[in-house]
Design a protein around this nucleic acid. Structure first.
Lengths: 345, 345
DNA sequence: TCGCATCATCACAGCGCTACGATCGGGGAC
DNA sequence: GTCCCCGATCGTAGCGCTGTGATGATGCGA
């Protein structure tokens, strides 16, 4: 019998080839020093630093962030939850946030709610299971359980793209009601009196609904009763064409239209063109988003630019400040928006 | 002296309130059984299952995926690396992939290369530090170190959105050269003989360059020397306007144009409109992408639909098959593309 | 010369979970 | 009645790293 020892080595899959202690051995220092080298390089003496750097390069060592996250009780991940990245606004924010976080060694864990609060709750639950450095979500409306989950977890939370109600923790966004009001006043200032707001999927997209209410309220302030039209399907040019058709039937002399989105505005613009309604003379049209094609349209689209990338950068700033332990005084940052005055309205 | 024990408890931050062993205690089973309950519920007897479910609900237990990932030597994360989600094609793929993966408890860790191979390498390095269930990246071109890193790590790798060279592991995409050829043949079949390909950022966007070469090759096969024009800036409508201007100056009788992207095509379309060049009679125009506005343009844009969501779903299928240990025979899946015949070209 | 900071380095006990292998009963098969 | 197999359950040793406190080594003023 060659029963070599008292206990057989238990079979266990190894995670990786090179570990920190192997690097330590190669560099002739302890594992703690290697760990320190990665976390606070300045606390390691230059000779040791050099030896470790050499060993890392030679062995091709890649630190295991999963183990690190477990030991440190917090992982270098920021969980980002948006309705959908197919929406250009959120794509811009995701991109800007990732770009701002990457230099600090933070990764983005992405989830899509598709405007479903139950799905959001499930996403928050799994997000928290990663012990993330921060959780970033869209909007201020969440299920009660989601709020409870977020409050219980002692993690920085940023709610973005909306402003109004107090955030769970921090907020970055702008006032969608003010956007609607700005558009209404723009149209009225140009002499429009028969106003309509054409939105898509407003039963789900609460921010679009806020723009609609802000629009109607500003109109009412000048004694105008604006129509609000909603298309239940996706916010695309087809919806815009359909909505213009409806607007023209319900309000034949409509002369000013706000669209919930540039794609919708574009659809309305083309539909007007097909019907030979001159834009902006007969019908003024204002969009939302300032998407890449807005300036190129004929006529160029007047629209609202929401600074989606600024939202991403501000979120990153707050998250990083919190991680560094700096006090964050501003509970809610207003990123504002700009009325881009072009020709259509 | 109330030195209670021989060794003081070392100060250490706890990661979470409720752990698996607390659930086990509450359900009156061992921690192993609770773990089994989450991983293979059917292997746990119904009474135990019920007791555990109750304890989980009562305590509000959320499993710690970081600890799980460390113990299992693999985390339930798929690392996804794309040039940019601001690009609608990739946004669609990211969205479809996330949707297909989420029901299986897999999260998406997102990174943007911005078309930079060095940045891609850094992203792959951090991605691997998460011991991901799979790594998904864009295109077949990578730095030698990136390829080495991916090969050494025993992880499923999927390269997407391109087809041609053999993939590191698995591939999902379509032939961009064939796209270019299809567009060229379409234009020639409609009697066009003066052809140009208008692309943007082709020094970086290798797939756009492949479409251009395929276009030129198919034209040459019929004795036509197509012009290839490149705009170094981003692929937006402004680039399209600029490129049409250049095309008209370099090739005054140009009658057929392929654009590297629907946004570029749209810019060219509007520019043609401004110059009163009838589309498609004087100038036929074909885009790429079938973005939401393509059908709404006036005239509706003939374009290529690349099935970005199918790419995402197929990637998910391969990743899941690999994780289940099923043999994946197809090294490279062709998702194809469709010529959407509308009016512009 | 001694005492006391200061700095670099180290040892080690976990972080919470999974996977292996062992244990324990309760049926069939013979 | 005995044996064996199989399903359910459990005990335990890590997974690779970090953070704390301890240990030397060094410098400096008194």
């Amino acid at each position: 019998m060659d029963d070599a020892g008292p206990m057989r080595r238990r079979g266990r899959r190894k995670m990786q080839a090179v570990t920190m202690s192997e690097v330590a051995a190669a560099a002739d220092v302890s594992a703690s020093t290697v760990s320190l080298y990665f976390r606070r390089p300045k606390s390691v003496s230059p000779p040791a630093r050099e030896a470790i750097a050499r060993a890392v390069a030679e062995l091709g060592y890649v630190p295991n962030l999963v183990a690190g996250g477990l030991a440190a009780a917090s992982s270098r991940v920021v969980s980002l939850i948006v309705p959908s990245v197919r929406n250009a606004f959120f794509a811009e924010t995701v991109s800007a946030l990732e770009a701002a976080l990457a230099p600090h060694g933070l990764q983005v864990l992405l989830g899509h709610t598709e405007y479903d609060l139950a799905r959001e709750e499930a996403l928050v639950r799994t997000a928290l299971a990663w012990a993330p450095a921060a959780v970033v979500l869209t909007g201020l409306e969440h299920s009660p359980d989601t709020r409870a989950l977020l409050k219980k977890a002692r993690v920085p939370v940023v709610e973005m793209w909306e402003r109004g109600a107090p955030p769970v923790d921090m907020g970055v966004g702008f006032d969608h009601g003010a956007v609607g009001a700005t558009v209404a006043r723009r149209l009225m200032a140009r002499g429009r009196r028969r106003l309509a707001f054409c939105g898509a999927r407003m039963q789900e997209d609460r921010r679009a609904a806020q723009r609609a209410s802000g629009f109607a309220a500003a109109a009412r302030a000048e004694g105008i009763e604006a129509a609000i039209l909603n298309h239940p399907g996706p916010a695309d040019p087809q919806a815009g064409a359909l909505l213009l058709d409806r607007a023209l039937r319900e309000l034949p002399d409509v002369d000013g239209i706000a669209a919930s989105n540039d794609l919708v505005a574009m659809g309305a613009l083309f539909e007007a063109q097909r019907r030979s309604l001159p834009v902006p003379d007969r019908l003024a049209l204002v969009g939302f988003g300032d998407l890449p094609f807005a300036a190129a349209c004929v006529p160029p689209l007047t629209t609202i630019r929401p600074a989606g990338d600024l939202v991403g950068r501000e979120v990153a700033r707050l998250v990083l400040a919190r991680m560094r332990g700096e006090p964050v005084l501003e509970r809610a940052v207003d990123t504002g928006f700009v009325l881009v005055e072009r020709v259509s309205g």
